[in-house]
Amino acid sequence: MSAVDHPAATEVLRPPPPPRGWPRERVIGYILVFLWALALVGLVAYLVSAWKPDMFWRYAPGYLSGVWVTIKLVAISVVIGALLSVPIAYGRMSRNPIIASFAYAYVYFFRGTPLLAQAFLVYYGFGSFRPQLDAIGLWSFFRDAFNCALFAFSLNTAAYQAEILRGAIQSVPKGQWEGAESLGLPRLLTLRKIIFPQALIVALRPYGNELILMVKGSAIVAIITVYDLMGVTRLTYSRTFDFQAYLWAAIIYLLIVETLRHAVDWVEERITRHLRR
């Protein structure tokens, strides 16, 4: 587009019509879409040609239980994280410098270090304290890799969710608090009836993203010998050396993530109906 072919100033300015023919962008776009289509066809063709019924029946139940472990892990740790995030978010907003800095350190630690390192620290590291853990009867809990993953994930997501919660609560204008106070509402009631419903709208998308990040992040538990979807996939691959093990896992993960993403979109659409014009 150059300066010459702009419409004359006296005319009504309209957006330029979409270019016709075959400009360079369209050629590149068509080639790329064609390549994606080719990749999809190739994937389907490969999966069809590599289809072995006996292998499917041997490993499909494993995949199902893997999906279940993934869902269980994510669901439980997100719920525990949500509960833990409330006092942490409260601490982050506290005016007491000791509480505030403690909450800040917690959040900074869990957001600044890899989830994998945290999982290793719990799974392998806590073994160093076996006598102490034995003494308080917690060793049987931390001996199981799933519990260790659950523990690390809950603490990790609590830090992220605390930040989401804090951001959402602080995004509600101060006047809402003041208005409730002038009506004589107690603080807790204000929080529940006035601040939370407004904060939820802001928080929904970040919460959805956090949920998706947890589903994706949960794949790392395969490294600490939990048989979630990724763990089952690795096991299947190590037994069969068949690459389709990973491709099926990719398809399942994509399905889960896309479902969650659309569910979040749908909920957001629902709860912002009153804001639509």
Binding site: I28, G29, L32, V33, L35, A219, L254, E258
Partner: peptide
């Protein structure tokens, strides 16, 4: 078409776990 190709790319690689 260009937009579509780019959207497919981000959908796939934001949906897959990094480890996978």
């Amino acid at each position: 078409s260009l937009k579509l190709a780019a959207d497919i790319y981000t959908t796939i690689f934001r949906g897959l776990p990094e480890l996978l």
